[in-house]
Structures are given as C-alpha cells and as structure tokens.
Computed example of a mutant assay.
Amino acid sequence: MQTGYYGAAAGMVVQFNRLDTIANNLANVNTNGFKEDNVVVGDFMRLYKEARDELPNANQTKEAAQFINRTMAKTPHIVDEYTNHSVGGMQKTQNNLDAALSREGLYFLVKTPQGVRLTRDGSFTKDDEGKLSTKQGYEVLPNDYFESKSNITFNQSDFNVEIDKNGQIYTNAPGGLNQIQQQKLFIANPDNLSMLKKVGDNLYEYKGMDQLKPLEDSGAVFQGFVEKSNVNPVKMMTQMIETNRLVGMYQKAMDAQMNDMNTAAIEKIAKKA
C-alpha cells in the first residue's frame, strides 16, 4: 500500500472541503448578520491517540492498531467546524424598523414554518397584515411569545415607530404625536453558542428553544441600523489562494508517488530480473 499517495489524497479532499467553506463565506460577504464559518484540520496521529482504546479491530490487538497507525499516519482530517460569532460592522439605513444587535451572542426570535428560529439579521419590515417580519416573511416575535403566542403588529396609523436600546417598541398615540408603549422584541442570549446550527436563510436552530428567556436589559439594540457580515473578504481571498496552492502541492505529490516512484521501482525490479 502506498501510504504517501493516500495521505496526499486525503489532504487534497480536506482542502476541497475547506475551499467550500471559504467560498460560502465569500458568497455571504454582503449578507446581513452572517457569521463566518471555519474548519479545524488535524491528522490521524492525534485522532488515533484519542481513540486507540476503541479501535474497531479484531480483539483490539496491538498488531492491528500498529498496522492502522503505520498505514494512515498523519493523514489530514477535518476534525471540527466552528462559527465565528463576533459582531460585524453596523450600517445605518433609512428604515426605522431595522434593528441591529451590538453585542456578541444575542439574537432575535422569528417564527418560521419549521418552528421558532434565531437570527442576527434585523432588516425588518411590515407585512400585508401589519405584522413585523423579516424580508423573507418570517414573523419577528415579542418577548412574551412563549406565553402569549402573539406577534408584533402595527396599525395603519402607526407612522412613528421607535425602538429603544432594550428592544422596547413605542408608537404614536392614535391621532397624536405622544408615544405609547407597545410590545418588546425578544432578545435571546443562548448559553452555549456552539449548539447553534445554521439552517439556511441566515437562521439558527437551537435545542431547548422554548427554554430561552428574553434578555430584558440588553442595551444592545440600535434602531435604524443593520449588522453586516463579519466576513473579512481580504482574509478569505488569502485563504482561498493558500488552499489552491496546497491542492496543487498535494496533486504533485500524488503524481510523483504514482508515476516517478512507481516507474523507478519497476525499472529496478526489471534490472534485477
């Protein structure tokens, strides 16, 4: 078995997967509230040391473990994937329904056909029924949603909407300019960000969603702003160039293993014969 060939092939596969992640980050540079994804690359040696007592070999023999270790030593693998949840830049808009969160780890709650989800995208609007919703049509939920199952709705006369730093919404009194208190945005602060799962449309799924409690005094809501992506395009382009170069290096290593080394071995065997 040519371990160098398989090691290079595994390395190339890892770089292709890394390239997919980088390309997705670049595609979402201008997506409001998008968070950059990254991968962690490790080798078989480290994985072997972590799981050597549970190797699926007959009788868990030392010889079987040594064979696998020799065969696949230091073969690269993607051992983990993670999301960078740092805050992106703030952009001022002309929409007083827009809201941005200035602290890491905070999320709005929205209602989708698949259930309640989290999002950082605060580009909000009114739907045809006057409900506060995302641009994708998902209802933005109030802080008492799990008790009341209600939504945030505006009347046609609500032309002056204000949202304070804690997400409390105020609208003008009917026929006047005085502000009256309405519902409050549900600002969630999940305990474990690593449990957030991206599910498309810039949304996150979180286990135990109905156990989330609204953060009453977040002080993090900026009305009239949206949070931009935290992807650094220059860094991503640099990583893309680096990844492409690594793919080329692995390809050369595979070519050398299969052609040059095999040709030399065949010629030596032929001479001895």
Rank of each mutant, 00 (worst) to 15 (best):
K126H: 12
L118G: 02
N151Y: 14
L185M: 07
D53L: 13
E54I: 07
Q94C: 12
G130D: 12
S157Y: 07
K111C: 07
T61V: 09
N25V: 08
V41R: 01
D43W: 11
V41E: 02
V140W: 15
D121Q: 09
V221D: 00
T153R: 04
L193K: 02
D191S: 01
K35M: 09
K165R: 10
F108W: 09
N178T: 11
F124P: 05
E36F: 11
G88C: 04
K62A: 12
H85T: 11
S123G: 12
G224I: 05
T61Q: 01
N17F: 07
M45T: 12
F222W: 10
G176H: 02
A100V: 13
G130A: 05
T263P: 03
V226C: 06
Y204P: 03
V13P: 09
T75M: 10
F225Q: 03
K135F: 09
A273F: 11
P190I: 10
D53W: 04
K268H: 05
E81A: 10
S86Y: 10
K271W: 15
K165A: 13
K207S: 09
M195D: 05
K74E: 12
N172A: 10
A173H: 04
A270D: 01
S102A: 14
N262T: 03
V140G: 00
K149V: 07
G115D: 01
E267A: 06
T71G: 03
N189A: 14
F16T: 08
I22R: 01
E242K: 15
L203H: 11
H77R: 15
D210G: 07
M209S: 02
Y138C: 08
A9P: 02
V79C: 02
Q251V: 05
K197H: 08
Q223N: 02
A10E: 10
A23P: 10
P56Q: 05
F154S: 04
F34I: 10
A188H: 02
K198I: 12
P174E: 00
T3D: 07
P233Y: 12
L185K: 02
Y204V: 15
S86I: 05
Y170D: 14
L132T: 03
D158G: 13
T243H: 04
L177H: 12
Y250Q: 03
Q60N: 08
N172M: 14
M258N: 13
L212W: 06
